[in-house]
Amino acid sequence: MPAELSATEALGLWHRVTLEQVRQGGYDLSFRQLSILLHIYLVPPPHTVRGLAATLGVSKPVITRALDSMGALQLVDRVRDERDRRNVVIKRTLSGALYLEKFGDLIRSEARRPMP
């Protein structure tokens, strides 16, 4: 069910979610990393470095640096495309799926709380 929030209420919700994420010791992802991760998990695959760069409007090295960080956290994995070895395919991981599931639950939980 869609919720009608003012800009201030939406920012307040985002503040509570990010604050709780920090308190819980969650990963410290940048907006870019979070955007990439959400895209990989919410948009049907396949995902390539080239495709992610085009979607986000950034260079391939920018995507590669973000994927390096997220790969070290085991949120995503990269493999060479067997059909075209020039392409790198980004794969989902169990750790990444669990992270986003918990993050989604956190958003839902904070959205149910009354605004201060």
Results as ranks from 00 to 15, higher is better:
V62R: 04
R32D: 09
I63E: 08
R80I: 10
R85V: 09
G26M: 15
L19C: 07
A54L: 01
D77T: 09
T48V: 02
V62N: 03
A53G: 05
R78H: 08
R23E: 14
R50Y: 01
W14Y: 15
Y27N: 06
L73N: 01
E82T: 08
A66F: 02
R32W: 00
D28C: 03
R65Q: 15
Y41C: 10
Y27R: 09
D28I: 10
A54C: 00
P45M: 02
A54S: 08
Q21N: 05
G25K: 07
A72M: 14
R16I: 15
R78S: 05
M70E: 06
V17I: 15
T64C: 02
L34N: 13
P61A: 05
N87S: 00
H47A: 01
L11N: 00
S30P: 14
Y41P: 00
V62A: 09
H15W: 10
V76G: 11
P44G: 06
S6D: 03
G25C: 03
A54F: 01
Q74N: 14
E9L: 11
V76F: 03
L19Y: 05
I40M: 01
R85E: 13
V89H: 00
L67P: 07
S35R: 06
L67Q: 04
L19H: 02
T8R: 12
R65H: 03
L42M: 10
V58H: 02
R65F: 13
M70V: 09
A7L: 14
G57K: 03
P45G: 04
G71Y: 13
L19K: 10
D68E: 15
R80G: 04
L19R: 13
Q21V: 13
V43I: 14
V49Y: 00
L5V: 15
V89W: 01
L29N: 04
S6T: 15
V88R: 15
V17M: 10
D68S: 15
L13K: 11
L19S: 05
S59R: 02
H39T: 10
D77C: 06
V76W: 06
A66M: 08
Q33S: 08
L37K: 06
Q74M: 12
L34G: 13
R85S: 10
L29M: 15
Y41G: 07
N87A: 12
H39F: 00
V43C: 14
G26P: 11
Y41F: 04
T64H: 05
P45I: 03
L73Y: 11
L29A: 09
G71P: 13
V22R: 06
L67N: 07
R85H: 08
I36A: 07
L67H: 07
S35I: 00
H15A: 02
G26S: 11
R85Q: 13
T64Y: 11
L34R: 09
L75N: 10
G71C: 10
G12S: 15
R16E: 13
T18F: 11
P46Y: 08
P44S: 08
L67D: 03
V88H: 05
L5Y: 02
D77K: 07
V79A: 06
H15N: 05
V76Q: 03
L38K: 13
H15P: 06
L73C: 12
R80E: 09
Q33P: 13
T8G: 12
G25I: 15
V89Q: 09
H15F: 12
L34W: 11
T8K: 11
D84W: 06
T64K: 03
S35H: 04
D68A: 14
R80A: 09
E82V: 11
D77A: 09
I40S: 05
T48D: 01
L73K: 05
